[in-house]
Amino acid sequence: MTPAIDIHNLTASYERKPVLWEIDCQFPQGKLIGIVGPNGSGKTTLLKNIMGLMKPDSGYIRIFGEKLDKVRHRVSYVPQRETVDWDFPADVMDVVLMGRYNPKKLFGRISREDKDIAIEALSRVNMLEFANRHISQLSGGQQQRVFIARSLAQKADLYLMDEPFVGVDAASEDAILNLLTEMKNNGKTVVIVHHDLQTAYEYFDHIALLNTRLVASGAAEEVFTSDLLQEAYGGRLTVLSRIGELIAKKDFPIREKGQEEN
């Protein structure tokens, strides 16, 4: 089976400073996959590159063996909660219905079917009773569940979630976790950025350990060895961070001209 995500030699920078070095790995389909690493290890950056929200310096990514634009409708992205202003004048239903938007349908009408899908998505995260509530009146966990409901409404095959368990109450955490397992059983692939080592092992089937470089990627039990964890959490490679600073300061290209791959 083609991997859900195939990352080839990805190097990506933030403000010209490389934060991901030569990431090269594959995520299988139909699994719960965790991208795990300490703060500032480039987890979110990796997700943004997969979603095409950032342009990598080199390397490329294939999703279900295709370029993102061809399979965008099969991919759903759940950004961190802090990326929106929760005081925005919108209620829960407004946000979930966004899951039914797409560039072509931006001008058409929202159909009865779209509404039904949104309602179903809300009930799957146990939030149906909050459908008409203003989004600022939700708890952190409920806000996260609204985001996930919007994502479900997209009816995708691959879901990318950025720290869905941060600032979430225990009830929401359980609800989200049950949902994720259910999604996996339905053959969906879910990739989750996660910083908590304690829970990572029990949550995920497949883990990518990240610390600006890829330390390991594979089945959870293979990756969770004390050696590899020590390597991922034992601090940054100083040579790497120093050379990153040099690149930013001197405006050096990360790839020489004429050397770019597709």
Partner: peptide, 23 residues
């Protein structure tokens, strides 16, 4: 009227909007 949904989604959540291919 015509751009209501585009204005709504890009004002509320630009990151999400561009993830579904909206400029």
């Amino acid at each position: 009227l015509a751009g209501y949904r585009g204005l709504f989604i890009t004002s509320f959540h630009p990151e999400y909007a561009s993830s579904i291919g909206i400029s």
